[in-house]
């Protein structure tokens, strides 16, 4: 199961629309991401990224719900580790 983790755009380099890239922050890890597919994306938006390409924009509420799910899942996995060890 792949998980789509939203990342927040912190800066954009838009000199060439085909090569539009931006720095995206995923919980502290900052990566250079291609933004050619989301021309309307702005600094501060959350994006879903697949192999280095932002494939869609999600609003902040939506991103927070995903983070909430991920947290719950993480807690479940930790619980499992504790019970199995």
């Amino acid at each position: 199961m792949c998980l789509a983790v939203p990342g927040k755009i912190i800066s954009i380099d838009a000199t060439d629309p085909l090569m539009r890239t931006g720095k995206v922050n995923f919980g502290g890890i900052v990566k250079e991401i291609n933004l050619a597919y989301v021309p309307e994306a702005e600094v501060g938006n959350y994006v879903i990224v697949h192999v280095g390409f932002a494939i869609s924009i999600v609003d902040e509420d939506e991103a927070n719900r995903v983070f909430e799910y991920l947290r719950e899942m993480d807690e479940l996995a930790e619980l499992e580790d504790e019970t199995s060890s």
């Binding site: 983790v5 990342g7 890239t21 990566k31 291609n34 990224v49 697949h50 192999v51």
Partner: peptide, 14 residues
């Protein structure tokens, strides 16, 4: 085209 989301990885690279 496996769905490895790899969001923290470099563009286009697995």
């Amino acid at each position: 085209d496996p769905c490895l989301s790899c969001s923290t990885h470099a563009v286009g690279q697995m």
